[in-house]
Design a protein around this nucleic acid. Sequence first.
DNA 1: GATGAATGAGTATTCATTCAT
DNA 2: GATGAATGAATACTCATTCAT
Lengths: 232, 232, 232, 232
Amino acid sequence: LWKDGMAGSKDSGPAGQNSRPLRQDAERNRQRILAAAAEVFTERGLGVSLDEVARHAGVGVGTVYRRFADKEELVETLFVERVNELAAIAERALEMPDPWQALVSFLEQWATVLAGNVGLRQMLLFATYAGDRVSYARETFAPLVGAIVNRAKATGQARADLATTDIPFIALMLSSAAEYAQYSRPEIWRRYLTLLIDGMCSSRHTITPLTVPALLPEELEATMRQRIPRHR
Amino acid sequence: LWKDGMAGSKDSGPAGQNSRPLRQDAERNRQRILAAAAEVFTERGLGVSLDEVARHAGVGVGTVYRRFADKEELVETLFVERVNELAAIAERALEMPDPWQALVSFLEQWATVLAGNVGLRQMLLFATYAGDRVSYARETFAPLVGAIVNRAKATGQARADLATTDIPFIALMLSSAAEYAQYSRPEIWRRYLTLLIDGMCSSRHTITPLTVPALLPEELEATMRQRIPRHR
Amino acid sequence: LWKDGMAGSKDSGPAGQNSRPLRQDAERNRQRILAAAAEVFTERGLGVSLDEVARHAGVGVGTVYRRFADKEELVETLFVERVNELAAIAERALEMPDPWQALVSFLEQWATVLAGNVGLRQMLLFATYAGDRVSYARETFAPLVGAIVNRAKATGQARADLATTDIPFIALMLSSAAEYAQYSRPEIWRRYLTLLIDGMCSSRHTITPLTVPALLPEELEATMRQRIPRHR
Amino acid sequence: LWKDGMAGSKDSGPAGQNSRPLRQDAERNRQRILAAAAEVFTERGLGVSLDEVARHAGVGVGTVYRRFADKEELVETLFVERVNELAAIAERALEMPDPWQALVSFLEQWATVLAGNVGLRQMLLFATYAGDRVSYARETFAPLVGAIVNRAKATGQARADLATTDIPFIALMLSSAAEYAQYSRPEIWRRYLTLLIDGMCSSRHTITPLTVPALLPEELEATMRQRIPRHR
DNA sequence: GATGAATGAGTATTCATTCAT
DNA sequence: GATGAATGAATACTCATTCAT
């Protein structure tokens, strides 16, 4: 997700809007670094060393440090790209006619972005990367998410006690499930999205069918056996 | 939870079932190490160094390595201890008269165990520790959890498409929420348990009240700002 | 001191005496670099990176390397500039009527130049910059300093065993004191100049008063506590 | 100086007085590390890397870090050894019958310790190594040095305006001279000690002879040419 | 058996210097 | 000629694991 996303678009151009554009070769390397970082962080988490990111990008580690003050800044840059993507999703959801469908669709798309992106989850979970980005995220998201939730509550479709701040938690939970089954059943989170959707609606006579089948016991065991690099 | 649990029980014999019993002092050291590891891993995650575990246990690192082949084996051993604890919870739940209440109570207790136990979550999430332990877990759990789920489905209370393998995912999702709000609102996971419960029941006319209030926007921001040691 | 000095004078031609003059813009850049380097080296020592020097000068690092083979050569060039300045001081001292006063005044002015010029002290102390510059310095200085010392000895005012080569050492010692008390009492070196002056005169019945008060014990402790970036 | 000093004596035993003695092999390595560090720091200053210290000591870098929390602690440990040595010198000087001779002898011995010990000078000059050591030094030195100075003033031999805090500066200045001529004429500082001594006495009819000859001009040039590792 | 000492590969980051634009 | 991008060796420090005492 990170890997393609909106990466190529204008926002990722020249080091930001405030400085003059990078030289072509520099910009090319910057993009390579971002792409390499996105790839390895997505798959293996933020623990990957910058040396490895550099190797992956085919540049020297010094080049990484020329473009990004430190690891945090690199991570943050990717974070901002993702945040923008998530915000765009929210905006599109607000344009949907049915408020409930908007909420559902929004959650689905958001979880899709998070699913399998180990690094993005770590970013959200451990905000070891600085402050302003977090504020930025909140400022960007809060109103949009608030609107989506409130619209769905106003029609009486969403339960009255649903709060805006529940949404990040729901996304987080789904992404946890997604990460866990990353290699065995990357789509499994959709199952739990349905469960949560059913839990969020204000009343219910029928059951939303679970379109994604549960893991088979063997699959669960394989999932539990999966090897992930390291815990430090 | 980890700290006492059922640590003393059958599983804690030697370093497996196949070797002769340890001398008493050796066994005492083994227990000390497990207790110390449980404590620090619970609070600070699996990243804590074995030197520190040893210091905490009042033994040398060498002793740790004499009792456990490597860090992984120590972690696995604790994992099995937890599995036993969780299995005991399942057994008690099976004795409850109302199948639906049994399921709810079981999930609640399981999530309680996971909540705030950083290390256990990492164990579940990153099963870097291999081997027969996982099979053991499955063999221990599967029938119990299966029974709980099937009982609730048999009465028509739980939705028919709920699967046994959904339970670990639900527990995992709740523990993610718990960990995220660890310092701001450690109980928040109960809110999402309710949502999931409502999503799991087969039909619904009324809403289970959310007894735990949602995070205020400021709380959410504080949560996002929390700094966790490192991503490696 | 470095900053203005005699920077514009004869030495500042091209990159030596043997090549044709630089284009005007090149020469302007060269001067900018020298000025910037003088400024930062004076204040923060020779450890400042060339990137920073370049930024300070408003040019690219590449330009620095086009004008100076390496960092050493830049440092040497500044060294020569300083030597010229110090030589000018010596020349003016030689014009003073009283030989003893000339010596005293010369030392005072020399020490003033060194005091607080971190970089210049490092240049003197660690002549990592090789070459003909040192010979140049000797050729420039030796006769002037020799004349000053000999004049003072000829009148019997300076002790007979004072040597020309003592002068750089005395200057160095004073600059050490100056650097040490840089932030607490930058003028303290004058105290020790007086002591040395009294030690250099051939006989003495009265004591030259120490116009600069000694450090208070607290000041000394503060001085000892001062933290200087790094020892590499 | 560092190299032999009092290094072998009891104070350098087992990691301090407060912990149980190290195992023999550990103590042997600790001494090796200290010896290696003393040697390289003495000759090349505190900039030498710990990897190199370790290599010099014939141990892995991890071993250095096992014995000393960080570079600072290693440096401090050596510093404390030297401070003790310097304090012992002061104490012995106080036992000399002639107060003036005591002062002279004290300065001479102190300068002897500092001379040529690049690292020790850096320690005194840049207290980048923590705080308590500095306080320790002051508390250890101040009274002793104060007594030496005051005794010499009380007899009228030392000039009345000499202060206790002048002593560290004098020692520093001499050590600067010593360092500068380290390879060409390591004893040259004695010449300037004489000058300062003559400047410190309260009156003078005769001149203390300068027993150490001044540098020849060629020697001075060689000194200026000396190469010292690096300025960063 | 227990201890804790030793090891060294691994991590983030800096900076002199070279070279493509 | 000027620029600044790229490089990579170097530095302080950590920690899982092995091995001498």
